[in-house]
Nucleic acid binder design. Sequence first.
RNA 1: GCCCGCGUGGUGGAAUUGGUAGACACAAGGGACUUAAAAUCCCUCGGCGGCAACGCCAUGCCGGUUCGAGUCCGGCCGCGGGCACCA
Length: 851
Amino acid sequence: MSRYNARVAEPKWQQAWEQAGIFRATRDEGRPKYYVLEMFPYPSGRIHMGHVRNYTMGDVVARYKSATGFNVLHPMGWDAFGMPAENAAMDKGVHPGDWTYQNIADMRAQLKPMGLSIDWSREIATCDPEYYGQQQAMFIDMMERGLVYRKEAVVNWDPVDMTVLANEQVIDGKGWRSGAPVERRALTQWFFRISDFAEELLEALDGLKDWPEKVRLMQKNWIGRSRGLQFAFDLVTPVAGHDEIEVYTTRPDTLNGASFVGISPDHPLARALEAGNPDIAAFNAECRRMGTSEADLETAEKKGFDTGLKVRHPLNPARELPVWIANFILMDYGTGAIFACPAHDQRDLDFARKYGLPVIDTFMALDDPQPVTDTAFVPPKEQKVKWIDHFTGLDIATGDEAIEATIRLAEQQGWGKGVTKYRLRDWGVSRQRYWGCPIPVVHCPDCGVVPEKKENLPVELPRDVSFDKPGNPLDRHPTWRDTPCPKCGRPAQRETDTMDTFVDSSWYYARFTAPHAKTPTVMEDAEYWMNVDQYIGGIEHAILHLLYSRFFARAMHLTGHLPKKAIEPFNALFTQGMVTHETYATRGPDGRPVWHTPDEVELTDEGAILRATGEPVEVGPIIKMSKSKKNVVDPADIIDQYGADTARWFVMSDSPPERDVEWTAAGAEAAWKHLQRVWRMASEIAEGPDDGASDLDLEKATARAIDEVTKGIEGFAFNKSVAKLYEFTNTIAKSKAAPAAKRRAMLVMAQLMQPMTPHLAEEVWHLLGGKGLVAAAPWPKADPALLVDDTVTLPIQVNGKRRAEITVSKDMPKEEVEKLVLADDAVIRFLGGKEPRKLIVVPGRIVNVVV
RNA sequence: GCCCGCGUGGUGGAAUUGGUAGACACAAGGGACUUAAAAUCCCUCGGCGGCAACGCCAUGCCGGUUCGAGUCCGGCCGCGGGCACCA
């Protein structure tokens, strides 16, 4: 018996699809469109299992939708700017552009054999001037719309390498290459006004019905709308031009419990005090030696410095509170200053205990009124509590009620104002790096900051740059910066910051609708193809990428690049789980981990060792496959050995798509065996005579398979569709039906498998005499009459434990079921002569006898 | 630290969303075919007890709601994702 040879069959069918042009998407107003998009990859050079999983899922949806009659758009591109290209340039001396384009070529060559139903004519790369030039045009449009501005913001500064570091490049507060303690440094940078859209981005979440609830919740919390009170504490003695400290609080109701006022080390007052007080300067400097990330700040040891200043309590001017500088207060949120109420905030309590500050209870629990000792009393704001001598006169009330009463009182008395604030900050897009989209503005000594003229776009990156020293090569390029001012024509200098790569990925979905147009988008194409009907990608993008894209789509609408209907660009979102793997590390000379790929590591009974040297390896946690941790597996090996269908079938089996999956090599072999089996069955059926009677059992099994596989695909439960196809295979294999009946079942099998294993499906379809390409055949329909059973088997429980079952006709009346149940031997035995107290019959489901 | 998830046999997972826990696979063990191997086919397979019928235990832990909880609620534990310059 010959075997199915994927090596021969797969290229053959890929060629057939290409010749038929069936994946080429063309606008056709007469047909309903369906736009399937998977998050485009960063061109690291190798595809990994996460890509295979992601793109197979998208392909299953695309092929299924196509079979059900939609005009499908399914494009692919490259998120091609970013740091790894510059790292490669520094490590290997290769140009970031050459490195990136080589990686794209390599990855395209790895991706094409997967047999994805992609319209490759729409391929884009964000590092192409054709793409980023249009992005620059939109940046200028956004400047004109007032959506862009400049302000000072802090960055991680490596004082040895004299360069800005990404958060990822800061390890334990030190630069990853230099090992020097990182400093925070303020630079003037470009920002998008995303916070102006906070309310709209928040409210529109409710309309995203086909997004996962968890993603909407994460975005909601990220935007972080809060209602609070803004007011000022008067300084007892004005200092350095400050006579008050403005604070924002979400718990103004606890004002009586204030024990000190805290300000951020970056607060203007804290900065002003540095001049006259070396201790404060030293403390602030120490605080600034931390990374800029919120996680760093929040997990760092809480430290404070008593400035010696005092402020007056607004409700009782006789009461004076000390002013502390504290390292956990963020300058970016609220006013950069707070009042602390240790009794009702654990962080404040820890701080107060550490520095011996008072803890003043303002309310207590109704059932157990205890003063606070080690644990702050923080009940839900909806819970009623007993207030201690509250200034609004409240006695028993919830936190929410007390907050509103406090705001009313403050506004009445004129010392404070109720305000709504958002946690969401404006989007800083400046990057002091080469391999990104140049920000298309010019700094003119006379005219100031001037946007480049559109006819001069794209502002292209210079090719002749060096990476022999750290820092931004654009800054030290001899001529690139020099350019005439677009306004006055006199000599001026280009901006050398490039854009955050999140900008590139915030609009690529729109560009795919007209990928090579001379404008960012073409309205007619956007009108037809937008929105993305199904977006698929990793859960790790739940907040930033998706929020930025939602903002950018709005900005594109305001600047005339997208229709109104596209301001929420993704109708449905599916977040796949990550492909995870163990991590392997040895220790470098400085004690920091040196990561190793699974390929380099051999797992022995005594533990993991490096293949090359036998050196022992620490086995770390199972985490998201990532380049930086090197815990990646190469799917090319699987495709080489077994073919694309096996890899596709394997990643669709077993694990539910939304859940993380730990990669193990074991299952690929089994997937391959199954596909061989299907092919063998098809060959046997094809060789047999095409005659004999139809077979009702097989027809019913076929209908059920169609029904359940379809439901699985529609509901993103591909693993269930696969399980059903295994079952259907077993049913056909065991069936004694005539060859013609089996042939019909097998043709449906080919159609149902087509989205997942398209090459094998074509082969089987062809073997059995199917017409044309199965990829172009309409989706099979299940005859509803074949889906219903006349009888059901009901489990019988006694006191909630299953004791027996009965098989009854589907629509037997309750009373008769009850009679049958009470006459059942097992039920009689368990009743032991007693009368049942209650009899619960759930029609078609279950019977429970309560004794 | 904060926000969001997840936790079911040796393994991946299923359970009609409150109604028979373990579908479908993997691994393992046994058998058939074969000179042999591969391939293929058949059988067993959560734990404990029992010859068996069957019984008891069991969905991370503790408690609650319910006739009935893997599913809902409360509290813990563990693991993962995000935290704004990784993409």
